[in-house]
Design a protein around this nucleic acid. Sequence first.
RNA 1: GGGAGUUUAGCUCAGCUGGUUCAGAGCAUCUGCCUUACAAGCAGAGGGUCACUGGUUCGAACCCAGUAACUCCCA
Length: 890
Amino acid sequence: MSISKTYLPKETEEKWYSYWLKHDFFKSVPDEREPYTIVIPPPNVTGVLHMGHMLNNTIQDVLVRRARMKGKNACWVPGTDHASIATEAKVVAMLKERGISKKDLTRPEFLAYAWEWKDKYGGIILEQLKKLGASCDWDRTRFTMDEELSEAVIDTFIHLYKKGLIYRGIRMVNWDPQGKTAVSDEEVIRKEVNQKLYYIKYSVASDELPGSDETTGTTQHATGNYLTIATTRPETIMADAAICINPNDERYLHLHGKRVFIPLINREIPVILDGYVTMDFGTGCLKVTPAHDLNDYELGQKHNLPVIDILNDDGTLNEKAQILVGEDRFAARKKIAVLLEEAGALEKVEDYKSQIGFSERTDAVIEPKLSMQWFCKMEEMAKPALDYVLDGEVKLIPEKFVNTYRHWMENVKDWCISRQLWWGQQIPAWYLPNGKYVIAKNIEEALVEAQLIDAVLTIQDLTQEEDVVDTWFSSWLWPISVFDGFKDPDNADINYYYPTNDLVTAPEILFFWVARMIMAGHEFRGQAPFKNVYLTGIVRDKLGRKMSKQLGNSPDPIDLINQYGADGVRVGMLLCSPAGNDLMFDESYCKQGSGFANKIWNAFKLIKGWEVDENLKNPNAIAIEWFGSRFNQALGEIESDFEQYRLSEALMATYKLVWDDFCAWYLEMIKPVYLQPIDQATYIATVQFFENILKVLHPFMPFLTEELWHDELFGERTEKDCCIVAQLPNVGEINARLLSDVEIVKDVITSIRNTRKTKQIADKEPLELFVKTNTDINYQQYQAIISRLGNISQFSTAKDKVAGAINFLASTDEFYIPFNETVDPVAERARLEKEQEYLIGFLKSVNAKLTNERFMSNAKPEVIDIEQKKKADAEAKLTILEENLAALAG
RNA sequence: GGGAGUUUAGCUCAGCUGGUUCAGAGCAUCUGCCUUACAAGCAGAGGGUCACUGGUUCGAACCCAGUAACUCCCA
């Protein structure tokens, strides 16, 4: 049978994924084993896989697979989020294409279309995750609008309402005029935008009362004085309620107590004083527009100013504006500038950069707007949620996020939970004809409640609140609701799997998802929902730009998988992903990943090609013992990397173990000459090593390892004997002396190779080697290895220095390679003197320490020991160098 | 404007309690090899004022202060 020269991922990936599925390896049911649970951060149901998902899910899969191989009952719960705004927007767009307008549909009709859409496109992203190798328990797939999950949302709403944590009120919210809904602070993306700063003149009214203009002969409009304000939003002047100046601003002392006129509409407003105004911004005069700016709103509250809302829900001006009614806010801005100019009220226009909020979902410019919304009080819930993190019960990885988390939790604001949408859980509030409302699970229960208020009410008198709850109001329940922990709070699943172990997510949703899950966990289970939160970075391109559809700088993950194989892409992602730091993704990492897969494939090919001769003696005992030790050492390092969630380092340690130690050193030490058979002991040990390597590799590269696992090289396997469920080897004995000896042996080999290079001796030409030992290393033991890898024909011990030979040091042992050409004494002297000079300098610095009283009295004993050893080493080397120099002279 | 973070080789990052032989890795680069597992390879090499300026210390990439640049969060 011929084996392909390179690893071909396509052929194996689908085969093994369906094999794993068929044998239920991803499936988890509670048993006596220790559970290991991850709930997926549910991607948007209509979404497609992007690089952020790739990273996030690769990490989760690595963790889950590793836990499975450590004998835990691993359960990874997948699912999707209904993403109300995004999905509703997509459904509206789809309907528009079909010539249907949302406002012509009833709510049930619209929802029918939405479900149809969800059923058609909802599965895509989960199917894509399978391509990546995600070992989720697909039987547990949940959707945030599944019946049980929606019921949990309603029940928790009622629960929190009864606790007094949910209230209805008029608040300034972030209004998305395109989606026509309020959005949470977290869904507002601030971007720096080039704008214009308009300087507008407001004329100052005379001191006379409005209308009494006879005494001075001047009208209110003609005091001749005016003040100038600077604004980026001239279209909102009609909503102005006051002009505010800083009481300490001496430029405007004369305006205290005055009133001014809004240009164009000539409405009179007061000049108020407040330290809030920054004197050096703009002109120092601030127009106060309570209806259209959050800070102005607060200022208005403080000074009892009226709120004049001149905008419709879709961002057009309403009749309260008096002028430009019906115009969109941006069109109105342009037009009003012209009108102001014509009226002589526009002083100047400047370019100005400022931060503007955009809707994350629709990219429309957010409008601060006063509206009646539902809110959830946060302060009470935030406190315990903060404590979990501060006490370390929930660990944030990396830790630096604790500070950010604390800052947010200590300044938490109430959560606007209502959304003016249809796609989502409708708020369980029923309005009575008198405007009062009741909160109840369904209309029947609502009627009971309503009749307590007014006994004559019937079902027809009740109308349910139109709004749905914010999507996050369902996802914050996710770790509980996926195990049906609301309806059935004592069921076997929730008792077994909750709290989950690790949550892997992006830092951008630390607050609006992670923090709230901790709150919900505490509120409804009295326990945080997870123990560790691993925060991944944002995937950026080489230029540091966030990957996005708009920029078109994001590769299609499925294309990457097709090109480099799922294993290659997984390795590529992890190679460049330190926890919590953004990663500059570049395809070359995937190339490195697929190159690694190929390397493993070829090591396999080599071993597989060997013929065993049972009569041969084992010449490789040392090499085998060395690699066994090295493997255990690496295993320990990898284990500790995982404990600290240093995944890319765990991968790198694995990479080097396989590539350097196994392939470059071990296999080269033991591989028989071409077409020669191998002895049985070496063969068995090597196959065993390789199998263990496959296990260590499996979480990173599941497909390749499973493919190789089933090769006949490893003997017969039963149907269920798969790499995915193999148990990771335990860290075994480590022969430290052997490891350190072999490092010196490697030095010797490298020096031989180096000598060949500098003296231009072909690798093929065998050389003689002499060693004059000054240490207790038994080179006899390593003779075979050195001879093999250095191509040494004769390796012997010398009592004295070998004249006329090239020499080098390994540790403090002296090595000589006789060389038929004479060694250039001048160059050799220069080389030795350079080394001597360095050692003298080094020795000087060591001696400086050792003779420094304060060092000797302050430094730890082990540090002093090290320094003394350095000194001894350096002295020994110097002695040898001096002898060699003397020999050269003689 | 307020807060947090980052700055180490061309790139991406390690460097843990301040102390292993003048700071490490992977990739990239350069040189030499088509050596029967792998040229997607092998062997070797070069590459650093640890952002800058001070301070603490016997000793600083690491601790402290200040400066600069960048990133994120909040207003």
